[in-house]
Design a protein around this nucleic acid. Structure first.
Lengths: 223, 223
DNA sequence: GTCTATAATAAGATAGAC
DNA sequence: GTCTATCTTATTATAGAC
């Protein structure tokens, strides 16, 4: 009830005036979190601004106050989820490992990362259904992911110099080979699991698949 | 103007009565085609029944007459697009090829198939956003895809017997390795292309990628 | 089987008080 | 900065004539 910007008159008046303590940062953040949940679960078209408001401690009016439109709120969600994973490759210290171990580590990291971040996988799928037109408009997102390519290129060079990797390999191809498998087994787990009667989230399957992609990539690169 | 079920009175009356010639099959099919276009482009939530009606030579009423609801129309679209690719593996005559060639052929076929059928890739992505709950309800779809596994298993056995493939490989893993790459480069081409500034539909990239997945799979399987 | 018109509801966005 | 109430438009679905 201690509020810095309350006039004397108001202070006297009624019960704590439903309006929670004014806290812009917290309000904005709570809207963003509610929006993440809604958009990830229902997609851009399926999400309802009213539902987002209901998930929040705030009102619908605040959504428009802070984010101007449903579309811009979605963009904020997209940037948030992309941003959460930025630069994480940098912390793997791949340059300290032998080339083969570095690749294994990168693959395992990518695998676990997708496995743990279903939200991210879903929002990227959703964005592609919308032809990637928001990522395209974003200033932030394209600037994030380029460190992976650099990391792979470094490993590639070292492995080539040591005579264990063949030459002429393309870092982007390697990245795609890794990402596609790690992404797909999360993004398509429902249809794939349903059609082939398999639970892709089972731990034994998960471990096996991690090894599959690890071996595939390494064997692809080796001489 | 020749119509088999017209009464004498009606025949006299006005101009050909906007109602096109009664043709149930054609009407149903034209609705289905319009629905494919709409759902593939906009997703299940984004699609509008009115828009589908506009794409058709028919009316909105007919959509409900033939398909009962938006959801069931979507299911029909899903089954149609899944059905279009059924049994195509059977026509590849993989059993007539040496194991390695059989795998190459299967990979190339899968690659081209996804590349050419963007509609299919999109509807599968859309379905996964909806947690695969329609595929789950479908009687038809799960019955389709099992021939691939059988085909891979045959190749695996032959290759193993000839001492060129290692033992203990799982057909489903191989299928996933192939599918994930072929699917991803289509499903995620917008975000991937935007972030890494590459046009995945360019022919040279396409040919290179086809070789990447081909080599990866073969190397993964070889002793 | 096909049409037009409309009911019922829900959605995105805004007004205006406090 | 925050709230409730509401405008406007669009959407799914149906009625009823022919």
């Amino acid at each position: 009830m201690s509020n810095s910007a309350v006039t004397l008159d108001e202070a006297v008046a009624e019960a704590p005036r439903k309006g929670r303590k004014n806290n812009p940062e917290k309000t904005r953040e709570s809207i963003l979190q509610a929006a993440i949940a809604e958009f990830v679960q229902l997609g851009l078209s399926g999400a309802r601004v009213d539902s987002i408001a209901e998930r929040t401690q705030t009102s619908k009016r605040m959504i428009y106050y802070y984010f101007a439109s449903k579309e811009l709120l979605y963009l904020a969600v997209l940037e948030k989820l992309y941003g959460d994973i930025r630069n994480t490759e940098g912390k793997l210290h791949l340059d300290e490992l032998a080339p083969s171990e570095a690749i294994s580590r990168l693959v395992e990291f990518t695998f676990d990362h997708h496995d743990r971040n279903v939200d991210f996988v879903r929002i990227v799928s959703i964005e592609n259904i919308h032809y990637g037109q928001h990522v395209m408009q974003s200033e932030l997102i394209p600037s994030l992911n380029n460190s992976v390519l650099q990391a792979i290129d470094d490993i590639l060079r070292r492995g080539e110099a040591q005579g264990i990797f063949r030459s002429g390999l393309n870092p982007l191809d390697i990245h795609m080979l890794i990402s596609s498998f790690c992404f797909y087994r999360v993004s398509n787990r429902h249809t794939f699991g349903s059609i082939f009667q398999i639970d892709l989230s089972a731990d034994e399957v998960k471990q096996r698949h991690k090894q599959v992609i690890c071996e595939s990539v390494l064997r692809y690169m080796q001489c």
